[in-house]
Amino acid sequence: MKARGFWSKSRIVEACLIGTSFLLVGAVCLWLSLKDKSAANTADISLKGERLYSLTLDHQEEIDIPSDHGHILVDVDVGKIAVKSSPCPSQYCVHQGYKSHEGESIICAYEGLSITLRSVGGVEVIHV
């Protein structure tokens, strides 16, 4: 029989450990959501790990990507990109809407599609 009931020394240590690791993960999540997001000017589109396109987000275009279960429509616009339609059941990728910041991504796990935004910079090469 435990003298102190549930809260023995071991339990307290355990609670502290769980609490601190929770705070750590929470802090990382908070930092990720609050950090400065700069505008992206390039998007990398990959399907099942294979890079299909690397586009600059400076024009309007609709890209049709054939996938396992149908076609995925990606809408490219100036400074932003979105998945317009997808044959996946959850439609989570479509609901995410337009992404326009560096580091953001749209993932359709069902089809294996991954769109990552980045900023090519400090712009090191310019074409004139």
Partner: peptide, 22 residues
């Protein structure tokens, strides 16, 4: 496993998923 199929962008979700796991 998701990393193998979808690449590094998925790591962006890791902190949030771990938080949920708690």
């Amino acid at each position: 496993i998701a990393l193998i199929y979808l690449g590094t962008p998925i790591l962006g979700y890791l902190p949030y998923l771990l938080l949920m796991a708690f």
